[in-house]
Simulated scan of single mutants.
Amino acid sequence: MKICIDGIGLSNLKGTSLYSYTSEFLNNLFEMYLQPEYQVVWGKSKYITSLGEKNKLSYLNLEMNRAKNDYRKLEQHIKKDNVKLYHSLNNGFSIPFEKNCKNVSTIYDLSPMENMLFTDKKYYEKFMTVFPNTVEKSDKIIVVSNFIKKQIIKYFHIDENNIKVIYPGCSKQFEPIEYEVCKKVLKNNYNIEGDFLLYVGSVHQRKNLHILFKVLKQIKEYRYTKDIKLVILGKYDGKREEYYSKLKILAEHLKIKDSIIFTGTVDYKDVKYFYNAAQCLINLSQYDGFPLSVLEAMACKTPVICNNNDLFKEVVGEGGILVDIDDEMYMKDAVLETLLNKNYRNFVGESGKKQSEKYKWSNSIEKTIEIYESLAY
C-alpha cells in the first residue's frame, strides 16, 4: 500500500508547533507501521530532515504552487502512481480538489472561523478558499482536541462519525534535566542568565503577551522577584512583526524592556533546556487547537500557568494552574506563588508531569493506523 503524506511542516516551517508535530508524528509512524510504502511531499528541492533514509520511504518535490492553492501536480502524482491514501498534516490545506484516493486530514486550528482578528487577511482568505474542500474531500478528519471537534461540527455541520479525536503525544526528549546543566547551556548558547518566566509559541495578538507584560511589571515590583526576566521563545518576524513592534513599545512604556528576551526560533533540541531552566511556563492564549508547548513543559516538571478556557481545561486538567486573563491581580499572585513557594512549585510540577504521561505518541499512532487500514482495506 502506498501512503502519501504532506511534509510541508517539517521542510518549510521550522520553529513552529506544526514542525514539532510533523517530526514526531512521522518518526513514530515509520517506526510503528512498517508495512506501507511511504511518500513524503517535500517543499524544497533538497530535503533536510531528521527522518533520514528509511526503507520504503521516498521524498517528492512536486513544486506545487501552494500560495495559489494549485495542487494539480499532487493530483496527477496520486493518480499516476496509484497512491492508496493521502494524509494532509497541515490543517487539511493540501487536500487535492480532484479526489483520486482516500483522503485523511489532521486539523489543529479553526481560528479564522472563531474570530477574524485571530489571523491575518492572507491566511483568512486561504482558509475560506481551501477548507470547505478539505471538509468535502476528506474521508476521515483527525482533530487534536475535543475543543476543535466541537468547533468543526459547529461551523461545518459534519457528521461526528467522520471525525476522530487523536491527541498529539509528547516527545521523549522532554523530561526533567538537572537545573545546572540547563543553565550552563542557556548561558553558553544564548547568553541567558538568572531566573526567568517562559513563553513558547508564536508572537501573535491572540496569545495575550501584552497582558503577560503587565503582570511581569507587577511581579518585578516585589523585593524578591525584582530581577525576574521573561523569555519569549518563538517567531516574531513576518506577519508577526506588527504585534511584536507594539510589544516593544509597551515594554518601553512599562520600563521592563531590559527584562524581556525575544530569542526568535531556537534549535528544537535545545527547547528542553529552556523548559527545565524556567521557573514556570505561562500561556495566556485566547485560542489554540492544542497547546503542545504546555504539554512539553509539564513533561519536564515545569509548572504551567494557563488561560482558564475550554481547551486548557481539557488538556491541562489538574496538571497546572488555570487563571482568568481578565484578573491581572490573580495572575500576579499565581505567578508569585510558584516563584516564592518551593513546595507549591514542586507540587504543580509533579501534577503536570503526571498529566503529561497521558499523551503518548504510541497511542496516537495506533489510532491513526486504525484509520489508515479501515480506509484502505
Rank of each mutant, 00 (worst) to 15 (best):
K99W: 05
K99T: 15
K99N: 03
K99V: 14
K99Y: 12
N100Q: 11
N100K: 13
N100I: 11
C101E: 05
K102A: 05
K102W: 08
K102S: 11
N103G: 08
N103H: 14
V104T: 05
V104D: 04
V104Q: 02
S105Y: 07
S105W: 07
S105M: 01
S105P: 11
T106G: 08
T106S: 04
T106E: 01
T106H: 10
I107N: 01
I107P: 08
I107K: 03
Y108C: 10
Y108P: 06
D109K: 05
D109S: 11
L110F: 09
L110D: 03
L110K: 07
L110P: 08
S111I: 14
S111L: 11
S111K: 07
S111E: 00
S111R: 08
P112Q: 07
M113W: 07
M113Q: 15
M113P: 01
M113K: 15
E114Q: 13
E114K: 12
N115Y: 11
N115Q: 10
N115E: 04
N115L: 14
N115M: 10
M116A: 15
M116F: 14
L117A: 14
L117W: 07
L117D: 13
L117S: 14
L117V: 15
L117I: 15
F118W: 13
F118S: 12
F118K: 15
F118A: 03
F118L: 14
T119Q: 13
T119M: 06
D120S: 11
D120M: 10
K121I: 14
K121S: 13
K121N: 14
K122E: 10
K122Y: 14
K122C: 13
K122M: 13
Y123V: 15
Y124H: 08
Y124I: 12
E125Y: 09
K126W: 04
K126V: 07
K126C: 05
K126L: 04
K126M: 09
K126S: 10
F127W: 13
F127M: 09
F127E: 05
T129R: 07
T129M: 00
T129K: 06
V130D: 02
V130K: 03
V130C: 03
V130L: 03
V130T: 03
F131L: 02
F131N: 00
F131Q: 00
F131Y: 09
P132N: 00
P132D: 00
N133D: 00
N133W: 03
N133C: 01
N133F: 06
N133T: 05
T134S: 01
T134H: 02
T134E: 01
V135A: 00
V135R: 05
V135F: 03
V135K: 05
V135G: 03
E136T: 12
E136Y: 06
E136Q: 08
E136K: 15
E136V: 12
K137E: 03
K137N: 08
K137W: 01
S138E: 04
S138F: 02
S138L: 02
D139M: 00
D139N: 05
D139V: 11
K140V: 13
K140E: 06
K140F: 04
K140I: 13
I142K: 08
V144Y: 12
V144Q: 02
V144P: 11
S145K: 09
S145D: 05
